[in-house]
Design a protein around this nucleic acid. Sequence first.
RNA 1: GGACAGGUGGCCGAGUGGUCGAAGGCGCACGCCUGGAAAGUGUGUAGGCGGGGAACCGUCUCGAGGGUUCGAAUCCCUCCCUGUCCGCCA
Length: 429
Amino acid sequence: MHDIRAIRDNPAAFDAALARRGMAPVSPRILAIDEERRAMILAAEQATAEQNRTSREAGAARAAGDEAEFNRLRELLADKKAEIARLNDAARAEDQHLLDLLATIPNLPLPDVPDGANENDNIEIRRWGTPREFAFEPLEHYQIPAARGMDFALAAKLSGSRFAVLSGAVARLHRALAQFMLDLHTGEHGMTESITPVLVRPEAMYGTGQLPKFGEDSYQTTNGWWLIPTAEVTLTNSVAGEMLDAAALPRRMVAHTVCFRSEAGSAGRDTTGMLRQHQFEKVEMVAITTPDQSESEHARMTRSAETVLERLGLPYRTMLLCAGDMGAGARRTHDLEVWLPGQNRYREISSVSTCGDWQARRMNARFRPEGGGKPEFVHTLNGSGLAVGRTLIAVLENGQEEDGSVTLPEALRPWLGGKGRITAAGEMA
RNA sequence: GGACAGGUGGCCGAGUGGUCGAAGGCGCACGCCUGGAAAGUGUGUAGGCGGGGAACCGUCUCGAGGGUUCGAAUCCCUCCCUGUCCGCCA
């Protein structure tokens, strides 16, 4: 949600920023509605003020025992009533009209976000680790003998395509990864862990920006709940409607949840393996900050995600997304792409975004500045830390050996009962 | 699923038709007191929207919407939400 005053103050800058997302200018339409809306509000309020005045006079006349005057004023009010109702309805309709339009407009890219239309225009800002030299042709994760516990046929029987059943060693590895991530973020990155619902009200989906525009990307239950596409929804909306203490910020949260995405429109992409699923698990980080904290927090959160990959010894690169490739709520996004030897390329494994006050306005999440003063909207940030299924893929592909076994990252041992590899037979050893 | 109870400001909580945006308390801000702090004490302190350079003015908001009334936090209706008890259940 955008601040109508900011648009009013500088419509050209607003349109210019949106143009970087490939959007046509909208400020003329917004300003026209806003002007109409304000005229309506003024007319309605003036009429109401007159009504209130007359009503007080009527009360006074009655108190003074002036029945004639009271009756005269009462009739006057009765006549005005319909007109006032009409003006109020019109003012409210215009106000809603503006809100509905603003709710569909994506966030403005920050100045340092590069121009560009799609992922080809993203900029690499960092690279860590060196992809391993293989003496053999590395396999994709679902081809690796050690990953035989990954069963897509069974998942298809139960649910259909784009689901996976994990059994045995891969299931345990998946669980270990999630726990390792949570322990890292809570133990070293100052985040508080939550277990949240994965079914939410529409309001929550609206707050983070999935609704009203992107409902087709998610699933809804028959009684109106939405299945979260990311724990960003629950963690971020935890502060919806709240007035937070500035001293309590930044608030850093992390949650491991299952996520659901219908992935409409990506049919045909990554159809094999568990890279892209309707249901997957993710460890999600969310930070609620004051406006002056959000920049450093974005860097910090990106580092928190990068640290997961570094501890696991997985080569990655950090991308700065171009304006055209960012999600609607983001002002700047860092994507972490992990090296997948089986695909011989880097693939997205985390996305870390700062949303400014765009979500906070939708949620009405504010804080009172230290030393008092008017409430201000908080800033919100979110990032994967990391997508668990994709991390599993990366661990399997990067650790695969010629004999079909997989050598696991040293850092995971405490979560694997001291074990360090999966045999070609699919046994933890 | 059934039966009750309830939704008031940053928080707690009073208020059952009239000048109530709303007592009181807590918190917070500023001052007094103090060597400094605590305690004590005084004053102030809701938010949104609109108008205005500003001071300020208007308007809305006591869960949401509608109704009754000259006038609604207060009465009536509908809906939403929360809690308690019962039933069921991992």
